[in-house]
Design a protein around this nucleic acid. Sequence first.
DNA 1: AAATTGCAGGTTGCATGCAAACTGTCGATT
DNA 2: AATCGACAGTTTGCATGCAACCTGCAATTT
Lengths: 230, 230
Amino acid sequence: MKTVTEQVISEIRERILDGKYGPGAHLHEATLAADLGVSRTPIRDALRVLGNEDLLVYYPNRGYIVRSVELHDVLDAYDVRGTLEGLACRVIAERGLTEAQREGFAELIERGDTIFASPSWGQEEQSAWRALNSEFHYALLTASNNRHLEPIMRQIRFFPRIFDSRLDPQSEFFQNVHTREQRVRSHHDHMHIVEALIRGEGARVEALMREHVYANRELLRRAMEGSGTF
Amino acid sequence: MKTVTEQVISEIRERILDGKYGPGAHLHEATLAADLGVSRTPIRDALRVLGNEDLLVYYPNRGYIVRSVELHDVLDAYDVRGTLEGLACRVIAERGLTEAQREGFAELIERGDTIFASPSWGQEEQSAWRALNSEFHYALLTASNNRHLEPIMRQIRFFPRIFDSRLDPQSEFFQNVHTREQRVRSHHDHMHIVEALIRGEGARVEALMREHVYANRELLRRAMEGSGTF
DNA sequence: AAATTGCAGGTTGCATGCAAACTGTCGATT
DNA sequence: AATCGACAGTTTGCATGCAACCTGCAATTT
């Protein structure tokens, strides 16, 4: 991030995602400017960008308020994500993998094997897995060679984060979702997806990816409906 | 459109879509400001928004240039659109239509029947069909009740328009695509889609919608590759 | 001759001032 | 008593000034 405006965008976005600015909160330009130690101009630029990302709602001449995000919105985000990553997988399989791509995916799988080689599941393994998981999904978008997918995915992947921020890390949800067991299952999904990609099984890999994302969606849905917090 | 900034956004976007600012063209703030008779501030706001829409590419401290759009990008946009509208159709079918929705879609189909009742195909019928077609696809997004779909579709639907603007309306492409015959075919697709929706056939209606969009994609692809203009 | 550095011109980035629009309150009129 | 209207305060919208940065050219150095 080079310019002040970019930093302001990131900062305000983080505050929204972390829940510091709750749903419906009015973002006052002068207050934000004083708070962040910059003038109103970069603030206004940032609000416009975040409005485009659908994190804020714009009312002409009245400014921006934080969009309210319901469970419904997050589940819908998973639907879109699963569908589009399924598309990515299908076109990759139908086009066929290059040698470099095959090696790249094989290496990503190997790194997963390494993480799960030991039965421990501490902070280190968890953050390593999160990074690897992001890399894997991002690699698929890149390999699909469809330039529309990456910006779309960047937009919608914020919504689960907003929801996560509202949760207590000690809650039942975290206990059920972020377990080693669930991660191992995800890793196995990835293995099957890569195998299907290599074999060029387009329809199958699309279904596998959809189901892979859908599994996480359902995990969230059941945990939230069970807890009844929302 | 209320504020000056919104108007500037629309104006510059139209100019890009119409090809007045060609791929790679540098959009100079002061020049645009003088040209449109406003100050640099709304211009800068507009450029930022259009950058977010992926119509412009941003280089920090050096401004914005018009993104180059290849045939490849337009075909990819169709892939995304077909996939996401397929998703919309599937969830509508799986949830089941309300009485009001069923009547709404039936009315849209009837309006299509009316347009094609006469064998003439003049300006009037063509613009009536374009409006109806937009309404139909928009109604599906609304009925899906997935709030992510509408903004995504709004972004990617610009790309075909950029391509259209580069074409000569007298060209072979327009002769082949914008015929009454092709429109009738689209109308029949819509009828089948609505029938499948009503019957709750989720998987089938998803496939139908994908194929409906894909047919247009292939029409474009063959016409462009045949003409060899790009 | 090639490379590097300093300078000039021009463009974007940010701050600030002023105008326009909106909100809420108080008072007048019916 | 209720509704409508005017006014004050506040907030956003737009214009403009200045600073920072980037590019290209030319002169100097190696």
